[in-house]
Design a protein around this nucleic acid. Structure first.
Length: 887
RNA sequence: GGGCGCAUAGCUCAGUUGGUUCAGAGCACCUGGUUUACACCCAGGGGGUCGGGGGUUCGAAUCCCUCUGCGCCCACCA
């Protein structure tokens, strides 16, 4: 901004209301232009946060707003504390979610994904990404996020993908990645497998069907209970418990599967719960995890009856091509008609669903890639639970972390999708082990020649694995890969910024992401990825419901920013959101944030409007500014303490009260000159300096408003911008002045109460007489006079007749009444106070007369009780004297 | 089924090793207030037997037991 513009701007009247919209874009541009967010390694201490990358095609929702506000507060504070703050932004390719969206869009255009080649599909997906990708990052700018945008990463960028492939190959060569034929979680809609973590178990009301199976060469039947009658076509056995006497006679016999008539053995295994159902279990190894285990143990046939989309295949006979749930109803009907179904009970059970598509998961046997987790988990467990080199906030999540890590299972990392990093495995034959892993097909060819001994192999003989890697297999490298620490482990950035400092995320991805990053950090770099993890809660609505699109209870984030300003929204979100606690969002909170901004704005207008004159500083002003300096220091210590414990809501609330109550309501009222009267320079300078300190500690929470006031107060060069100024240092302060003020504020409140009680308007000055028993410093008398609109404050040694009175500790204050006062009412008031104080004294003495209390309690506590005793005695004397006087 | 956590004012929550400052904060509510920064404001005020019951202690919101009501995570019972 040029000097002329600055003058022009300053000459314009400052608007009475803070106009967030007009101000925010201006300062964001200013910060960007001056590259304050950009970080390069230097000799300062680094402070690093990597953003939890949102889905590239996502839009900003309340969870993002909360999460990123917290990160920005931490980053801005670190920057003010002189650290080299670096907040790396970026987006995630979110394979399943994004691919599902692209597939849906193609479908609208009449295109079937299965008709496309990988390359063709990828073209569509990239188009989609280019169209919608990164919108969310633009939205974060509106919120004020001070990310280093020059470092923006996307998990599918070439360099990121190279890192992922390199890690896959390394882990494969270490023997940690293997290919296995296993029962996996199949999502029939997305037509891919999912990791165990991506399966959400939901309680559903289903039926338990009791079916009769005929026993071969017999008139007998055996009854089994199942929730999935359609899977009988894949039955391989009936299993009974060897200890179950009801079925002893069936041992070694064979049963006949209804409808298809297949003969299956009756096997015995104590896995079967005698108590459940009929004590007989039908075994379907192809479609149930447990049945697979039983099948392996008893060498049962594996009969797969589903297609990839969960319709029945040829084993489904006349149901072939129909959906599993449709068939369930139809087959139940048929079984009933034919007399196999003997009864149906309602049954509440848990059903696994896909986190992304909500589709019911179908357990399915297939070849997949897995990462062995058990040994990898060890250092990650130690780091969090033993060494405390990584701290979780709140701490309660350590239990959850421990449980998962100690019971960790191998991670299925392959997905039957296009949108992701294709697995770098190449097959050269039909054998189970006829593959090699390499980052290029040329490299693969060499390896394949060696492995197979067939030197005549050609590139055209190789086929790359069709699967891609789980998205989290790229996200788990994020804190390293954003600094290119995988490909170039010795580069300057990774050495400087890693390990990062704080990670801010939701507890829902503790396993998906946080735990795995810790694992990756130790395995690949032998270093933790971050030191502190701050878990935010879920943003809910006033009725505690989750915010969701389907409920329509999620406010439009950008609309909120328009209505309340980014600062207002930030404050609103942070006001009541302790780490790990859900936040009950209410627009009223943002309104409170906006009102706070306006309050500060008006305090600024007041100060800015003062005419400064070379006049002596009044005593009250000197006392007031001294007091505030001490108060500020004391509060700063509290704020630091809150930050050190990641109690950001408390840090904000402490700042809020300091500025609203202490600064605006007390300090400014104390120093404020009479209307249109000038202020002395000394006081003015002090107040401006105080305001500047306030702006500094408020800046992380309300960056726009504070920068606007900072820059309007005075013409600043880019090097003097608030965003890069310095956080106030903790200095020692005068405690006694704070005690003096506490006492004073009680006196002022006493005066105000009397004024209100007796309807004496503030503009009417009054007199005040003090019967002094306290050894309080009298420095504050001028303050009392100012805030109480006292004409004369005088000390007296006796009670004052015909006056209104109140007491603070054992001091008595009298306000002479112009009209006769209601003596009866005064007497009643005094008697009430006396009665209360005597009762209080009695309870204190009871305590003090208790031998065991005096000997058992700490000295400090006993002393304080004795002090209470003495204070109460003094006050009782005062009260009695006044009563005698009145009577 | 296993584990963890929570219950304090109308609402959202603080309350550290039991004892100065223990019953608090913000919002909401009630009363009064418009020339003099701000009605997005100022001043004053009411409000809780700390979920129920029992115990330990001189002393419990705080420690122990138990009951009730919630929440979360994990788990292959058809």
């Amino acid at each position: 901004m040029s000097t002329n513009n600055q003058k022009l701007f300053l000459s314009m009247p400052i608007p009475p209301k803070y106009d967030a919209l007009a101000v925010e874009n201006k300062w964001y541009d200013y910060w960007m232009t001056n590259k304050y967010f950009h970080s390069i390694p230097d000799n300062r201490e680094p402070y690093t946060i990597v953003i939890p990358p949102p889905n590239v095609t996502g839009i900003l929702h309340m969870g993002h707003m909360l999460n990123n506000t917290i990160q920005d507060v931490l980053v801005r504070r670190a920057r003010l504390k002189g650290k080299n703050a670096c907040w790396v932004p970026g987006t995630d390719h979110a394979s399943i979610a994004t691919e599902a969206k692209v597939v849906a869009r193609l479908k609208e255009q009449g295109i079937n994904k299965n008709d496309l080649s990988r390359a063709e599909f990828m073209k569509y997906a990239w188009d989609w990404t280019d169209e919608f990708g990164g919108v969310i990052l633009q939205q974060l700018k509106k919120l004020g996020c001070s990310c280093d945008w020059d470092r923006t990463k996307f998990t599918l960028n070439d360099d990121m993908s190279e890192s992922v492939i390199k890690v896959f190959i390394d882990l494969f060569n270490k023997g940690l990645i293997y290919r296995g034929f296993r029962m996996v979680n199949w999502d029939p809609q997305a037509q891919t497998t999912l990791s165990d973590e991506e399966v959400i178990f939901e309680e559903r009301l289903g039926n338990l069907y009791y079916l009769n199976y005929k026993i071969q060469d017999s008139d007998e039947v055996i009854t089994i209970a199942t929730t999935r009658p359609e899977t009988i076509l894949g039955d391989a056995a009936i299993c009974i418990n060897p200890n179950d006497e009801r079925h002893t006679h069936l041992k070694g016999k064979k049963a006949i599967v209804p409808l298809c008539g297949r003969i299956i053995p009756i096997i015995e295994d104590d896995y079967v719960d005698i108590e459940f159902g009929t004590g007989c279990l039908k075994v379907t190894p192809a479609h149930d995890q447990n049945d697979k285990v039983l099948g392996d143990k008893h060498q049962l046939e594996v009969i797969e009856i589903f297609n990839l989309d969960a319709t029945l295949n040829s084993f489904g006979m006349h149901y072939e091509g129909q959906d599993r749930f449709v068939v369930r109803k139809k087959i139940a009907k048929e079984l009933e008609t034919k007399g196999y179904l003997i009864k149906t009970e309602e049954y509440l059970h848990k059903v696994g669903t896909s986190e992304r598509t909500k589709e019911v998961i179908e357990p399915r046997l297939s070849d997949q890639w897995f990462l062995k987790m058990e040994t990898l988990a060890k250092p990650a467990i130690k780091a969090v639970l033993e060494d405390q080199s990584i701290n979780l906030f709140p701490k309660k999540f350590e239990n959850t972390y421990r449980h998962w890590m100690e019971n960790i299972r191998d991670w299925n990392i392959s997905r039957q999708l296009f949108w992701g990093q294709q697995i770098p495995a190449y097959y050269y034959g039909d054998g189970k082990d006829d593959f090699v892993v390499s980052n290029s097909i040329e490299g693969a060819l060499e390896l394949a020649k060696n492995k197979s001994g067939n030197l005549g192999l050609l590139i055209s003989d190789l086929t790359q694995d069709k699967d891609v890697l789980d998205t989290w297999f790229s996200s788990w490298l994020w804190p390293m890969s954003v600094f290119d620490g995988i490909r170039n482990p010795e580069n300057e950035d990774i050495k400087y910024y890693y390990p990062t400092n704080d990670l801010v995320t939701g507890p829902d991805i503790l396993f998906f992401w946080v735990a795995r990053m810790i694992v990756a950090g130790y395995e690949l770099k032998d270093q933790k990825p971050f030191t502190n993890v701050y878990f935010t809660g879920l943003v809910r609505d006033k009725q505690r419901r989750k915010m969701s699109k389907s409920l329509g209870n999620s406010p439009d984030a950008l609309k909120l920013i328009e209505d309340f300003g980014a600062d207002g929204v930030r404050v609103g979100l942070l006001l009541s959101s302790a780490a790990g606690n859900d936040l009950m969002f209410d627009e009223a909170l943002c309104q409170q944030g906006k009102a706070f901004g306006n309050k500060i704005w008006n305090a600024f207008r007041l100060i800015d409007g003062w005419k400064v004159a070379e006049i002596p500083q009044p005593e009250y002003a000197a006392t007031a500014t001294d007091w505030y300096q001490a108060k500020f220091q004391k509060t700063l210590v509290e704020i630091e303490d809150h930050f050190s414990k990641y109690r950001l809501s408390d840090a904000l609330m402490t700042t809020y009260k300091l500025i609203w109550d202490d600064f605006c309501s007390w300090l400014l009222e104390m120093v404020k000159p009479a209307y249109e009267a000038p202020i002395d320079k000394k006081t003015y300078d002090s107040v401006v300096s105080i305001l500047e300190s306030n702006l500094k500690i408020l800046h992380p929470f309300m960056p726009f408003l504070t920068e606007e006031i900072w820059q309007t107060l005075e013409k600043r060069t880019p090097k003097q911008a608030l965003i890069i100024s310095s956080w106030p240092e903790i200095k020692s302060y005068d405690h006694s002045i704070l005690e003096g003020f506490e006492f004073t504020s009680e006196v002022v409140s006493g005066i105000r109460s009397i004024r209100k009680e007796k309807n004496i308007a503030f503009k009417n000055p009054i007199d005040l007489l003090v019967l002094n028993n306290e050894s309080q410093v009298k420095n504050f008398d001028s303050v009392i006079s100012k805030l109480g609109n006292i004409t004369s404050l005088t000390y007296t040694t006796t009670s004052v007749d015909n006056a209104l009175s109140f007491r603070v500790k054992s001091n008595e204050y009298f306000i002479p009444a112009n009209d006769a006062i209601d003596v009866e009412a005064e007497i009643l008031k005094l008697e009430d106070e006396l009665k209360y104080t005597e009762g209080f004294l009695k309870s204190v003495r009871k305590k003090l007369s208790n031998e065991r209390f005096v000997s058992g309690a700490p000295e400090q506590v006993v002393a304080s009780e004795k002090k209470k005793d003495a204070d109460a005695v003094a006050k009782i004397e005062t009260l009695k004297a006044s009563l005698i006087n009145l009577k």
